[in-house]
Simulated scan of single mutants.
Amino acid sequence: MIHTEKLIKKYGDKTALSVETLDIKKNEIVGLVGNNGAGKTTFLSLLLDLIKATDGEIKIKDSAVSKSEEWKKYTGSFLDDSFLVPFMTSLEYLEFVANLHQWKKGDLDEFLTQNKAFYGDDFLTGKKMIKDLSKGNKNKTGILGALIGNPELLILDEPFANLDPTSQQWLRLKIQKLSEEGVTAIVSSHDLQHVTGISSRIVMLEDGQVAKDVENTESTLEELESYFGAKITEESI
């Protein structure tokens, strides 16, 4: 579904990302891991055509994202607060996103009813603008917005951050259910337990390059913890 070819992003003399090739198949849940500055958000931003590549390209369904708008019709994404409209309430924002997907009011009402366990009773009834919400409720708003429109491709950056345990578990199960229904998902997270708990495949970035690309197995979490733990010396503690 996604094909990356000789993708490079530079800022001045610094290479933020250099990926020779990376393919993601339909229905895969790809967990994207790595330390801060590894290139995860840069890769997702390039995938969503939010920034321009220095060289190379990313294709979704054989169309370069920088040359086509078609992929936007079936892609749901949430990377950070910049995706939200700060002077709207959560409900107003979700209504706005629903309108973009040409959903009727009944479609949104049904969607919210189906996913009510994620956001609770009072989440959409309040009058707080998004800019005044807690980080957790901002994340919930963005994640719900990404799910509107029944996306074929779901892209989430740190979706578990600031969520309560019940909401985290709901999201894990939701992503897995969507994959079973044919959705392709890319989930970037610092939380190794969450990402290995849902992913069929793990891609690890380091210094802007793919350092590991493996099928997720029972031993993957332990291997990742050992890898990142090996970077810590006794003197640094």
Rank of each mutant, 00 (worst) to 15 (best):
Y74K: 08
Y74R: 14
T75M: 11
G76K: 05
F78Y: 12
F78E: 06
L79F: 00
L79W: 00
D81Y: 02
D81L: 02
S82T: 15
F83M: 10
L84A: 02
V85S: 03
P86D: 12
P86Y: 07
P86K: 13
F87N: 12
F87M: 05
M88F: 15
M88P: 01
M88L: 13
T89L: 06
T89C: 05
S90C: 09
L91V: 13
E92S: 09
E92Q: 15
E92D: 13
L94F: 06
E95V: 14
A98E: 08
N99A: 13
N99T: 04
L100R: 12
L100W: 01
H101A: 06
H101M: 03
K105R: 10
K105F: 00
K105V: 05
D107S: 00
D107E: 00
L108E: 07
L108T: 05
L108I: 10
L108A: 09
D109P: 01
E110L: 13
E110Q: 11
F111Q: 11
F111D: 08
T113N: 08
T113C: 01
T113M: 05
T113W: 00
K116T: 10
K116G: 03
A117Q: 14
F118H: 04
F118C: 03
F118E: 03
D121R: 15
D122V: 12
L124A: 12
T125M: 09
T125E: 10
G126V: 05
K128V: 02
K128L: 06
K128E: 06
K128S: 04
M129W: 05
M129T: 12
M129G: 11
M129N: 13
I130T: 04
K131T: 11
S134P: 02
K135D: 13
K135G: 09
K135Q: 15
N137F: 08
N137I: 03
N137D: 14
N137M: 07
N139P: 03
N139H: 15
K140D: 07
T141P: 11
T141F: 06
T141V: 14
G142N: 02
G142H: 01
I143E: 07
I143G: 09
I143K: 13
L144I: 14
L144Y: 06
L144A: 14
G145M: 13
A146D: 03
A146V: 10
A146C: 08
I148D: 04
I148F: 01
G149S: 01
G149E: 02
G149V: 01
G149A: 05
N150T: 15
N150A: 15
P151M: 10
E152S: 14
E152P: 00
E152I: 03
L153F: 10
L153Y: 08
L153Q: 06
L154F: 03
L154K: 08
L154H: 05
L154E: 03
I155H: 09
L156M: 00
L156H: 00
D157G: 10
E158R: 12
P159M: 02
F160H: 01
F160V: 11
F160N: 04
A161L: 07
N162I: 07
N162Q: 12
N162L: 05
L163K: 10
L163M: 09
L163F: 06
